[in-house]
Amino acid sequence: MTLEHLFDIPYPILQAPMAGAQDHRLAVAVSQAGGLGAIPAGMLDAARLDEQLSAYRALTERPCNVNFFCHQPPPIDDAREQRWRERLAGFYRELQVDPAQIARGPSRQPFDAAMAQIIEKHRPAVVSFHFGLPAQELLERVRRSGAKIIASATTLAEGLWLQERGVDAVIAQGLEAGGHRGMFLESDLSTQLGTFALLPQLADALELPVIAAGGIVDARTARAARVLGAAAVQVGTAYLATPQSLASELHRKALQDPRARHTVVTCAFSGRPARGIVNRLIREIGPLPDTPAFPLASNAITPLRARAESLGLDDFTPLWSGQNASQCRTVDAGQLTRELGEAASDKA
């Protein structure tokens, strides 16, 4: 069975879910053009996700993917939090930010029973997970809703782990990919492979369709992924420049700038490894500082980001991007989907 048949989509193109940089409108544009649009739920509560899915369904009947995080919420470590704020103290003074006003508690929630209720209500065609899978009872609720289940793997071991637990397809997230690494079996970054090294390993070892993600932005890279065994490709960075994305003007400008050639995997913004364009925060404290656990690290960065952005600066903004932003264009998301879809569907 082809992935197009499995997901009921004309093109083997998936739009990567990008929490904070999109809403249902990007997903609608991709799905109506023949791909599989995605709605990221990692930064939403159940009520807001309900609104997003209702808004999506009001505009199209096409299938969509709803994406969730599966991290374990960490306890607040006051000592580690204090060290992190002390590391940022110079920035607070410079931008006149009062550390006493910094929020506490997680800014992102993992998939839970409240979210499972929303899935049961809306019954999306596909549900995807990042950072592993939820507890078995929650996973079974998703499966009983009728949704196909997919999840990210960054190593062969993770792909085999996901297959053993009955997912319908695996996303091969290469090291080139922008945003948060989906790694979950271990935290050693040296285990991470590039897309075109990871993809054939997973395609050869798994009995499931494999979706390539990371560095895929145009016809050439989409075709190359198919040649290496991908049943479909997932594209994120290229969609950030489209009119339907919610990427800020600062983020869009950075993607179009030569500085986008230099990206790095950093935990400075959230406490978990994620790839973005190098900016002042990364340069001055390093890409992998000692931070509170994900997602608590972001609380101390948020007011710095807000203040700097009000001055027109992206010094503390997470400029998520894959390693290949060279083909980011301000074309309509539907047009981009059709172009990529025709390339990825080309069997010649």
Rank of each mutant, 00 (worst) to 15 (best):
L6P: 00
D8Y: 02
A16D: 12
R25C: 11
R25S: 14
R25H: 09
V30L: 02
V30R: 05
S31D: 08
Q32V: 05
G34K: 07
M43G: 09
A46H: 09
A46N: 10
A47L: 13
R48M: 15
L49I: 01
D50L: 12
Q52F: 06
S54F: 12
A55N: 13
L59A: 14
T60W: 11
R62Q: 14
V66K: 10
D77V: 01
Q82H: 15
Q82Y: 15
R83D: 04
E86L: 13
A89G: 04
L95F: 04
L95S: 09
Q96C: 10
Q101Y: 13
R104Y: 12
R104S: 14
A114E: 15
A116L: 04
I119F: 09
H122P: 01
H122V: 01
R123K: 11
V127L: 01
A135E: 14
S145V: 12
S145G: 06
G146S: 04
A147L: 00
A147N: 04
K148D: 07
I149F: 03
S152T: 13
L156W: 06
A157L: 11
A157Y: 11
L160Y: 06
Q163Y: 03
R165W: 12
G166A: 13
D168I: 13
I171S: 08
A172Y: 05
Q173A: 07
E176H: 03
H180L: 12
R181S: 11
G182F: 08
M183C: 14
M183A: 15
F184Q: 04
F184T: 09
S187Y: 13
T195D: 02
T195G: 04
F196N: 10
L199S: 08
L199W: 14
P200M: 12
P200S: 14
Q201H: 12
L202Q: 02
D204K: 15
E207H: 15
E207A: 15
P209I: 00
D218K: 08
A222W: 00
A222R: 01
A224Y: 03
R226Y: 01
V227Q: 14
L228K: 00
A230D: 03
V233F: 02
V235F: 04
Q244N: 09
S245L: 09
L246G: 10
S248T: 10
R252Y: 01
R252W: 07
K253G: 15
K253I: 12
L255A: 00
Q256P: 03
T263Y: 12
V264L: 03
T266M: 08
C267T: 15
G271K: 07
P273D: 00
I277S: 05
N279I: 00
L281N: 05
E284S: 05
I285M: 00
G286A: 02
P287W: 03
T291A: 04
T291F: 09
P292R: 13
L296Y: 11
S298L: 08
A300F: 06
T302D: 11
L304T: 06
L304N: 01
L304D: 01
L304P: 03
A306I: 11
R307M: 03
L311N: 06
L311A: 06
G312Y: 00
W320F: 03
W320L: 01
G322N: 07
N324D: 14
A325F: 06
S326K: 10
D332E: 13
Q335M: 10
E342N: 14
K347L: 11
A348I: 09
